[in-house]
Design a protein around this nucleic acid. Structure first.
Length: 242
DNA sequence: TCCATTTGACCACA
DNA sequence: TGTGGTCAAATGGA
């Protein structure tokens, strides 16, 4: 496959017209190889904090998408020009709740590796933001429940779901780490997994009997079910071939 | 003055 | 031909 760096090197020494042409040439290469099932990573994520994921992004476009209430915003890595980092993400609000939930679609991995580890540390903050937002929502919905045993049980269930999601993500990261060879990331994700487990174990379990959360306490996620906080996009051509 | 964001226009693809 | 993704000039803030 043609290296993107080759194209990016060309970018720096050509006119705008040639720049655009090379960009399209590269897009054609990507699409061509996509047809041949070459690995290009894409994943979707639902989050309350779409703008703080540990990386620096620059917005390059916004578009109303047919059938969507809210516009989709297009971001690429700040180091796109400097280091040719191909990472991009699309952010679209998926509901009008307070706080609103956003769907973020990440495309391509960062090659600006100096910010890589901090991303995974940011992930723990990110998950904490999700948990906090979720619990605030529950508290606002039924403040009296927070102060009774049943309320504690419901909150524990809510936390269970969130932390379970975190562990799923971290386990996924562990697998990804072996692919890209970032040992440091593995250490951090293991630490995060341990943090999540200890956090999980430290939550007092007032009611050992699983309780079904009433409707007003369930998180309104719109389309995605809770088990799909982080969703891998199966585009049908992820398989790496020799 | 520099840099990030906005926004209309352009292009590729289905 | 409609839709989604990207570009780049214009604009605004630090």
């Amino acid at each position: 496959m043609a290296k993107r760096d080759d194209y990016m090197a060309s970018f720096s020494s050509c006119s705008n017209g040639a720049h655009k042409r090379l960009s399209r040439d590269f897009s054609s290469h990507v699409q061509e190889h996509a047809k041949k099932r070459v690995c290009i990573s894409t994943r979707a994520e639902y989050t309350y904090a779409p703008y703080h994921d540990g990386y620096q992004w620059r917005k390059y476009g916004q578009k109303m998408i047919r059938g969507n209430t809210y516009p989709r915003c297009y971001y690429r890595c700040t180091f796109h020009q400097d280091h040719g980092c191909p990472a991009t993400k699309h952010v679209e609000q998926s509901n009008s709740n307070d706080p609103p939930l956003f769907r973020v679609i990440y495309t391509n991995e960062h090659t600006c590796s100096d910010t890589y580890v901090s991303d995974y540390m940011a992930s723990s903050i990110h998950i904490q933001q999700i948990a906090d937002a979720s619990l605030r929502k529950a508290e606002m919905a039924t403040p009296s429940l927070i102060h009774c045993d049943a309320g504690h049980g419901l909150i524990k269930e809510e936390k269970d779901a969130i932390i379970s999601s975190l562990l799923t993500v971290i386990n996924g990261c562990d697998a990804a780490a072996s692919d890209v060879g970032h040992a440091a990331m593995q250490e951090n994700t293991s630490a995060l997994a341990q943090m999540a487990r200890s956090s999980y174990e430290s939550i007092p379990s007032v009611s050992p009997i699983p309780l079904a959360a009433p409707d007003e306490l369930k998180m309104d996620l719109g389309e995605p079910p809770e088990s799909h906080w982080f969703e891998a996009l199966d585009l049908g051509w992820f398989t790496q071939t020799g």
